[in-house]
Amino acid sequence: MGAYTMRCSLNLLVPVTVLAASVMGLAQSRPYNLGTPLSQEEIRGFDFMVGPEGKELPGGRGTAKEGAEIFAKRCALCHGRNGEGGSAQRLVLGSPGNPHRGPFKDTEKSATSYYPYPTIAWDYINRAMPANKPGSLTPDEVYAVVAFLFYRNGIIQESDVLDAKSLPKIEMPNRNGFVPAVPVWPPDPKKPSWF
């Protein structure tokens, strides 16, 4: 605005030209001028989807030991005491120090060791669990529950601390268990539609 005012005082023709150009530019890039602009602060209030690189992960931390307590209170009723399954799906396959490396049967897919990226467990638990009160766990609690499940699945050590830095670095045992390795669109024209 400072530059604008200065130009204004120097030459009336320049700002009029600049203004006209910018209105035209806006008209071209945003033809209907509908919708309400969102501030970065507003976006932070709902932007909870976490991608495979974990860029959106918030601060906080947790360990398997802390997670065991939270799991017992918030998750075990449906998923079983140690995540072996109950009225809801099993979450554990393999055992501490001994991860299941696949292949996975269809009934084993719900175990967190099936997931190709460690962020998937964090993202889903954070937004959608527990099913009776989704989104009610704090970031610390989500890190801890994920640590507990990964420990029970043999993916991390009991003493490992999970946070925004360490979580995305975990190598999942089934990382290469998906075809195609990276989803593609449009599909390879050489592949039949049944593929």
């Binding site: 991608g51 495979p52 719900s110 099936y114 990226y117 998937i120 993202d123 889903y124 990276v182």
Partner: peptide, 17 residues
């Protein structure tokens, strides 16, 4: 975004061995 997000439903529920 710049990459597929491989979220829970896509990775777990909707993938088939």
């Amino acid at each position: 975004v710049d990459q597929p997000y491989m979220t829970w439903n896509e990775s777990m529920n909707h993938s088939i061995p």
